[in-house]
Structure formats: structure tokens, C-alpha cells
């Protein structure tokens, strides 16, 4: 599903240059649930941003679902993001003046899906995250866990190839974190490919594979026995 080779990225900090990713080689198969771990500054967010086409690599190849991702202009990147990727953020990033259903249907709007169908799909996905009756509520009327579930529904609504979650539980308490991870596991069990960036070991243990990053290189890449979040809820 994802294949990256010799990925380099550096940021220009005034006169000095900060080499964040120093040659990453990384493969993800379809249906995997991968945790990307590392301390802050290890380059895990940068990697995720490049995978999410929010940032571009300086060097290296990136192939997503057989499509080589390179020479992206903003319009092309937007189209690819819309087609291939779903995003879940630490701070949810729901649009605060749109209700849950409208938030979920937003990626479909940019796909040019008709109103009626959008509404229907949005409700369907809200139902899957258990928030159907909250469809008309604004984000300010939802709890943190509910917001993240709406965000996951939004990320899934466009049926992406890969779901990218950047610290999805970073702003949540343990119980809610596990609820959210339970949802992510369910989605994974349905065959979706998911990448989770986290620095919490217990969250990482709920994935099927852990990739450790340190100073811009992968220091460890292991399959783990998945801990089911449902057991802890």
C-alpha cells in the first residue's frame, strides 16, 4: 500500500539546516495498523506529514497504492489527499460552526458528491462511530472523545486507502483514549490501512506493528501482539 525509499527531509533554520529525516525506508501492506513512535524531534510527525502530502520530501520515492507521489502542486496534492487519505488530528480540527454531520460530509463535498448522498453517507458513518443521534450537534456540544469519533467518521467518509492519525489520543484521558483506539481497531479489522503516530506505549501496543524513529532514522520495526482496546474499556 505504502512504499517509501530513502526519504530525506531537512528544514532550513536560518543559516543552519536541520536534517530531520535521514533516509527512511518503509513499507506498509494493506490492512496493517502501524504505530509510529519516537520522542519529540525524532521526525515522526514530519514523516506523517510527508505521507499525508501535507509536506514534501527533499529526496526519495513515495509510492501510495501504486501511484508515485512526486512533483505535487497544491491542487494535485489536494486531489490525492481527498482520494487516498483520511486525517485524524490530535486537536480534532472539526470546523466549529458546522454540526457533526456537516463536518463528516465535508470531504465528500470536495469530491463533488451530491448533497443528498453526502447527508446519507455522513449519517451512516456517524452511526458507525455511535454518534448518529448527535448528528445535528455542533462540536462545542460534544465531549473530547465524541469529537475525535466525529473526526474519525469524517476521515473515513471519503473511503480513503490509508487513515493517518497524528496523536489521535493525545488530548484525551485514558478511558476515552481506549474508546477511540477501540474504534480504530474496529476500522482496521474491516481491512483498512491505518498509521498512528503516538508517543504513548500503551496506545502503540494496540497496533499490530510498531516503528520506532530516533533522530530521523528507523531504529526498530517490529510486529507486536495486538492488545485489544475493548478489553480495557
Amino acid at each position: 500500500m505504502i512504499s517509501i525509499k530513502n526519504l530525506h527531509k531537512s528544514y532550513q533554520m536560518g543559516s543552519s539546516s536541520l536534517h530531520v529525516l535521514k533516509g527512511i525506508d518503509f513499507e506498509v501492506e494493506e490492512g496493517e495498523l502501524v504505530a509510529i513512535m519516537g520522542s519529540s524531534g525524532s521526525g515522526k510527525s514530519t514523516l506523517l506529514n510527508i505521507l499525508g502530502m501535507l509536506d514534501t520530501a527533499d529526496e526519495g520515492d513515495y509510492i501510495l497504492d501504486g501511484v508515485e507521489i512526486k512533483d505535487l502542486d497544491e491542487t494535485k496534492a489536494a486531489k490525492y489527499r481527498n482520494k487516498f487519505l483520511g486525517f485524524v488530528f490530535q486537536s480534532f480540527n472539526l470546523i466549529n460552526y458546522k454540526n457533526a454531520a456537516e463536518n463528516v460530509s465535508l470531504p465528500l463535498y470536495y469530491q463533488g458528491v451530491s448533497r443528498k448522498e453526502r447527508q446519507q453517507v455522513a449519517l451512516e458513518y456517524l452511526d458507525r462511530v455511535g454518534l448518529k443521534e448527535w448528528a445535528t450537534h455542533l462540536p462545542s456540544e460534544l465531549s473530547g472523545g465524541q469529537k475525535q469519533r466525529v473526526a474519525i467518521a469524517r476521515a473515513m467518509a471519503s473511503q480513503p486507502k490509508v487513515l493517518l492519525a497524528d496523536e489521535p489520543t493525545g488530548a484525551l484521558d485514558t478511558k476515552t483514549s481506549y474508546e477511540v483506539m477501540d474504534l480504530i481497531q474496529q476500522i482496521n479489522d474491516e481491512g483498512n490501512t491505518i498509521l498512528v503516530v503516538t508517543h504513548e506505549p500503551d496506545i502503540a501496543q494496540m497496533c499490530k506493528r510498531i516503528v520506532m524513529l530516533k533522530d530521523g532514522v528507523i531504529v526498530e520495526d517490529k510486529k507486536v501482539k495486538q492488545v485489544k482496546a475493548a478489553a480495557h474499556v
Binding site: 501535507l54 489527499r81 482520494k83 480540527n93 465535508l106 470531504p107
Partner: peptide
């Protein structure tokens, strides 16, 4: 800014 960033992450093109 942030809202527009989210929209673009969700697939809004610059022209939209």
C-alpha cells in the same frame, strides 16, 4: 487559518 488548513487536508483545492 486553521479551518482553511483542515479544509485543504480534507481535499479542498487552492482554487476552491
Amino acid at each position: 487559518t486553521k479551518e482553511l488548513g483542515v479544509r485543504r487536508a480534507l481535499g479542498a483545492t487552492p482554487s476552491e
